[in-house]
């Protein structure tokens, strides 16, 4: 086996052999099911009050809402793949096993990306499964369309996990990393929009659309270009992380 698949096999074993991974997975599933159910309940109640007929509820809206919350759990998962190593000093062992920094980060990205994409599919599918029966009379269920949205949600969650992996490598500490992730995804677009409103500079609103939060929302709404924007954020974080890992002493 080549060095990269070997490193990835080690990373996969490390990811699944700690409880925090399973706490993240369990937390994501619970959060999604809870949010999707609440969302389905309030949407259903409102639409029935309005005497809306079949097809009035947008498919997967409940799950999209759930993904906004689950996002941070996926970020934690990606981040812990590296900040966990710094916190426990196992980074020393990891780098002794895989001395090539770029190879190590590529292996981590492959494992975090694949695992969170798979988990994202599961979580999104569960969100749909929970809300579908609650909205059965209002929901225009189109299998192809729903599948596409589920894929987009999984892609968004995986890309955010990769962004957090890159930032975690740069920052090395969990608390700092999660703060920066939250700031980038949640606070930055609000800040830019606020600035735009205050200064009247309309281009700031456009810029806000290219930050990871709104880009991810547009990806989930069916805009593949926004997916590329989010992917560029993740790629940039990982590239900076590779550079830092090479330049720094472990």
């Amino acid at each position: 086996m080549n060095a990269l698949p070997r490193a990835a096999a080690a990373e996969w074993l490390k990811l699944r052999s700690v409880r925090s991974t399973w706490w993240c997975a369990g937390g994501a599933v619970t959060t999604m099911m809870l949010v999707a159910a609440l969302e389905a309940d309030s949407t259903g109640r409102y639409l029935r009050q309005q005497d809306a007929g079949p097809g009035s509820a947008e498919a997967v809206t409940t799950t999209v809402a759930g993904a906004e919350w689950v996002l941070y759990i996926f970020a934690a998962l990606g981040m812990l793949a590296v900040t966990g190593e710094y916190a426990t000093r196992t980074i020393v062992v990891t780098l002794a096993c895989t001395p090539s920094r770029s190879r190590l980060l590529l292996a981590k990205a492959a494992v975090v990306g694949a695992a969170s994409f798979a988990a994202g599919l599961l979580v999104a599918a569960l969100g749909v499964a929970v809300s579908a029966p609650m909205l059965h009379d209002l929901w225009d269920f189109e299998t192809g369309r729903v599948a596409g949205r589920i894929l987009a949600i999984a892609a968004r969650l995986a890309l955010v996990a990769l962004l957090a992996l890159g930032l975690g490598t740069l920052i090395r500490r969990s608390a700092g990393t999660i703060t920066v992730v939250f700031g980038l995804v949640m606070v930055l677009p609000l800040l830019l929009q606020g600035l735009a409103a205050w200064s009247g500079a309309a281009f700031l609103t456009a810029v806000a659309g290219y930050t990871p939060g709104p880009a991810g929302q547009r990806l989930v709404a069916g805009d593949p270009v926004a997916g590329l924007v989010l992917a560029a954020w993740a790629a940039a974080a990982l590239a900076a992380a590779t550079w830092a890992l090479r330049a720094r002493d472990a």
Binding site: K14, R19, T88, R89, V92, V93
Partner: peptide, 8 residues
């Protein structure tokens, strides 16, 4: 001590 405490 460079071992993840949660890993066997």
């Amino acid at each position: 001590k460079a071992v993840h405490p949660a890993r066997s």
